[in-house]
Design a protein around this nucleic acid. Structure first.
Lengths: 206, 206
DNA sequence: AATCAATCTTGACAGTGTCAAAATATCGTT
DNA sequence: AACGATATTTTGACACTGTCAAGATTGATT
């Protein structure tokens, strides 16, 4: 039903910590009904505060969306980090394949947030927060490092620059995510096969 | 109902044929300032007609957007058709590479229209017109046929089903388009290299 | 207790999509 | 040529949206 600041810092000021409440509820609303269904007014209403109260914690609707997107980046960053830890136990091909599967699952599970992370709403129409900019750059850097490693180990194609390889590989993942997230492909049951095909394309063919 | 044949121009009625004018001007406005900058009211204003006049030619804003997207599909369909004609003169690898370059150029040149063709605005939030549905299906069918041909000729990877190959290859192109169209990658100068890398990934490695 | 800044509310404005009803123009008949 | 049906356009209205300015409330600091 309601969450009423599960965080700490209770009961000072009118609401407690509105910032966290707003962020939490906004993420919830987006997950429920898409980015379009999130309006500053409805958000305020649901948190139980007046229309313009959120504007003292987020400069803009844009700023709020950036904050939500940022949390998404934290999630995938964590995923990537976990993968690189267990590197020893299995073959690199296997790990890579699994990562791709998980990445796309994650993107679908939190599709609205994913859309925010890489959508035009923020990156073209809006103006990405400095903080968001940094975090996304940071994440791509992590990705790039891993791809470099995979190239060194001859798991992925070589020949082209690793930077381009990293960009194109990610673009492939991203393309698949968009297809499903945007509702162009709807057959969820084909997804696994498509991912395997994509991975085959990316891996070095022995 | 009504059909509003596009063929005859005919100067009858108040405006002439509003339908065509609306479609044309809307496409123009979208190209100028993005999908978000297109409002039914501003459109009507620019065409020189009252706010609600467009609603007698397009059921919805959604219907208008679908019509614009449809024209985009006509364009790429034409491109694909042209490619398949000159099949004799050059190597299939060369033709495929060129097609990919042209496709992505086209997507960037008409990025707003491209976004409409494959964006959530229509396919997830809105409801694609029956007509749009058909045309997009038709286009994918053409694409699939070509990919099948390329697989037969051992130009592309074999091993996975050609359907999946077609889907994933297109997803890769699409991913690249989105990266640039959505403003995530901004270095236009890297595009050609990235496309080459992507093509290398897709082609059968000899 | 008085002051100050942080926090929240009320009021307002311009913009959006779209429905209902009224006005107007054109066409097909007579 | 006149008239009624019909296609086309307009005016008015409603419920939304983001966000600014000004005022009110509260907590902490002096």
């Amino acid at each position: 039903m309601k969450q009423t600041d599960s965080a700490s810092v209770s009961r000072n000021y009118h609401h407690g910590d509105l910032y966290q409440s707003l962020l939490f509820t906004a993420t919830e609303m987006i997950a429920e009904g898409g980015t379009e269904s999130l309006s500053m007014r409805k958000l305020a209403d649901r948190v139980g505060v007046s229309r313009t109260a959120p504007y003292h914690h987020f400069k803009d609707k844009n700023a709020l969306l950036c904050a939500i997107a940022e949390q998404g980046f934290e999630r995938v960053e964590k995923l990537l980090h976990e993968v690189r830890i267990k590197e020893e136990s299995e073959s690199l091909e296997m790990i890579f394949t699994q990562y791709v599967h998980t990445y796309i699952e994650l993107a679908y599970k939190h599709r609205e947030q994913y859309d925010l992370m890489f959508g035009r709403e923020i990156w073209r129409n809006g103006t990405p927060t400095e903080s968001l900019h940094n975090r996304s750059r940071q994440h791509f850097k992590s990705w790039l490092k891993w791809i470099e490693h995979l190239c060194d180990e001859k798991v992925l194609h070589v020949g082209d620059s690793t930077l381009r390889t990293a960009q194109v590989c990610w673009a492939t993942l991203h393309g698949l995510c968009r297809l499903f997230n945007d509702g162009i492909y709807t057959e969820q049951s084909h997804l696994d096969e498509m991912v395997d095909t994509a991975v085959n394309m990316m891996l070095k063919n022995t």
